[in-house]
């Protein structure tokens, strides 16, 4: 290595180390473990990552749905003050209603949104088994799974959603 190159390398190393120091910032965040994040860690990803232990069937979900969901979403998921959860109307135009069966791309989104946001008046009070059971009930009523299929962290991500392939990433260059 020439003297000139050696100086250049030294300068680059110095620059790199000073950048690293600057990037560290004030470091005022309190270290925390994933276990301590615990109850807040509720993202269910499309590949099943983040789905908790537990399971449920449509038969188990039906009475829970009737008790905790039907007041807003209607009997059998047909819709009331809140939107319909069951039904597969054809998409005929840009303003067509988007339903789980005719539009949603991922079954895990059903579980994720029930777990994080429902019931409206008492979110995040359902057990994981209850969320799996209600998810199974909604998917079965939509004929997206069989009436006796068990939903759990392994089976749920494998449920094929009919509209899954009809999405276009609008700005792929920004990802």
């Amino acid at each position: 290595m020439s003297t000139r190159n050696a100086v250049l390398v030294a300068a680059l190393l110095a620059l790199a180390s000073s950048t690293a120091v600057a990037a560290e910032g004030p470091n005022l965040g309190q270290p925390i473990t994933e276990k301590e994040v615990g109850a807040w860690d509720i993202n269910a990803m499309p590949d099943g990552t983040g789905l908790p232990p537990g399971s449920g069937t449509s038969a188990q979900g039906a009475p829970i749905y009737a008790q905790k969901c039907a007041a807003c979403h209607g009997e059998g998921g047909k819709g009331a003050s809140a939107g319909a959860l069951v039904g597969n109307p054809p998409i005929t135009g840009i303003e067509s209603p988007k339903t789980i069966a005719n539009f949603w791309g991922y079954s895990t989104t059903v579980f994720d949104f029930i777990r994080r946001a429902m019931p409206w008046i008492s979110p995040r009070t359902l057990t994981n088994d209850e969320v799996y059971a209600i998810t199974a009930y909604i998917l079965a009523e939509n004929k997206l799974i069989g009436p006796n299929d068990v939903m759990n962290a392994q089976t749920l991500p494998k449920v094929k959603m009919p509209n899954a392939d009809n999405f276009i990433i609008r700005f792929p260059d920004r990802i």
Binding site: F103, Y106, A117, I168, R170
Partner: peptide, 23 residues
């Protein structure tokens, strides 16, 4: 995560019945 708001509410339908995601 393919969350509710990104895959349902803010994925908009196009005339060809496909939909934009991540607008």
């Amino acid at each position: 995560a393919m969350s509710y708001y990104e895959t349902r509410t803010y994925s908009q339908l196009l005339p060809n019945k496909k939909a934009y995601r991540f607008h």
